[in-house]
Design a protein around this nucleic acid. Sequence first.
DNA 1: CATTGACCCTCCCCTTAGGTCAGGCTGTAT
DNA 2: ATACAGCCTGACCTAAGGGGAGGGTCAATG
Lengths: 272, 272
Amino acid sequence: MLTVGEFSKICQVSIKTLHYYDKIGLLVPIKVDPFSGYRYYDSHQVEQMLLIGRLKRYGFSLDDIRILLECGDDRVLFAALCRQKEKLELQKRDKELVIRELSAHLQNFERTGDIMGYQKDYKIAVEKAPDRTVIASRQMMGVKDFGTYYSGLYERMAKDHLTPDGLRGAVYYDDEFNHESSDIELIVGICEKDKADKTMEGRLCAATIHKGPYSSLSDAYGALVAWIEENGYAWDGAPYEIYTKTQFDGLAPEDWETKIFFPVKKRPAAEV
Amino acid sequence: MLTVGEFSKICQVSIKTLHYYDKIGLLVPIKVDPFSGYRYYDSHQVEQMLLIGRLKRYGFSLDDIRILLECGDDRVLFAALCRQKEKLELQKRDKELVIRELSAHLQNFERTGDIMGYQKDYKIAVEKAPDRTVIASRQMMGVKDFGTYYSGLYERMAKDHLTPDGLRGAVYYDDEFNHESSDIELIVGICEKDKADKTMEGRLCAATIHKGPYSSLSDAYGALVAWIEENGYAWDGAPYEIYTKTQFDGLAPEDWETKIFFPVKKRPAAEV
DNA sequence: CATTGACCCTCCCCTTAGGTCAGGCTGTAT
DNA sequence: ATACAGCCTGACCTAAGGGGAGGGTCAATG
């Protein structure tokens, strides 16, 4: 029988933490004196507490941990650990990406002396976009689903003996061009005009090229929207992005390139 | 002049976020209608908002960001970015370590079928520890300060022409053996008995070897304390750990070894 | 001109994993 | 008997917003 103080020292957690774990039912003392309210722990609970600490270090929330321990099935725990490992790998990769972005930002700053200089140099121009013959898949989705839906398109291409012309892109219909979840159409260009889902008619577009990882794509959208506003144009249709240089070219995220097209029309002079 | 809704879509942040940034003074609209309370943003503020998003991605808190932007000195920002990069590198390394620990845990689980099996196999035994002739440095400190204080000891050794015998360790006087901050004495074994700060007399100790990174040292302490309790012994002095295999041997964290000694005495039979 | 629907406002409570007092018991040693 | 260490509960705090209630505003339509 250990008091909270003793137990907290052995496990190296604060008394407050033990109070909290008691409250949320994660680690309940074996005995609580009904008069004084004093908590007493068993020395076997040290092991439990250490496991909790370990799972916390693995990135589980206390709620996850409680559920895992209450379930008591080792296979469930094993599966959860495997999933968590995947998640940690993803987080690590994202952290690496952030570091690379930050490095690029620093280099750019040293070169240009401009703190916004990571890519303020978006060259924006109005051009007539070419016609594009594509097959397409339109859904509510987020960037994370791109892989799945692109696979679907490529599968269809294989089945129907279509020839890709190298173009891949996405159209944002929600005027939020939100990469997390919105009404997005993925497109893949093909050579066979007659078998295409549609032909995207070449329109007048404000366009620019974004260099770097997709996490900073919103910079390019921001720059474009501001430019359109300031140069007397107005949106006129769903914007889309074409992936010109990607990981499939064996490139690192900082070397990827994405060209963004915003269909626009000239605003009447009166409005300008 | 953009309304919150427009601004939020362009920058891809929620209206709630914009309200919040306004409230904390991070990004204040250029105009707020005094009657309706409507917020209006300038298209130049898009750039500002994107910079904020970028800094957030680099891991700065909103408070840090506000201070950095208010200061407006690019050199300060540059320095902060450099520091942040260091911090991110550290976080990445820690994440890698967690992943390695988790992998080891999974392997151990597969091997032993015991979910606590990452290292439950602490072989604990009572032994008479050897005498140790050491120089020592005792302070309130945490693990993070070990490097500094060890450097001090090695410097002294060089100045006084002392010969290290390869032993390095730490004594925990606070009976909390808290690695974050407590009354810790670092020791380095030397050959010259006459010039030593002290000789640690070999006592009866419960001892075990912890294999793996220091983050899981508390497991070993927990196991030892439980064992002592259950086997009719009682603490009798400050526990210490000796670093037998470390990074200085060119090893990865999961191969490090630390031997932990707990001075003990047999409890009278009546108490058992 | 009135209404509809989209858009906007403030205010309040909720989230994680506890930390930090304040005020008041309890247990043990002297 | 008293001192002091240890323990209790309860209230309020953190960061970065999310969710919803209840109500006002804007622009276009009938």
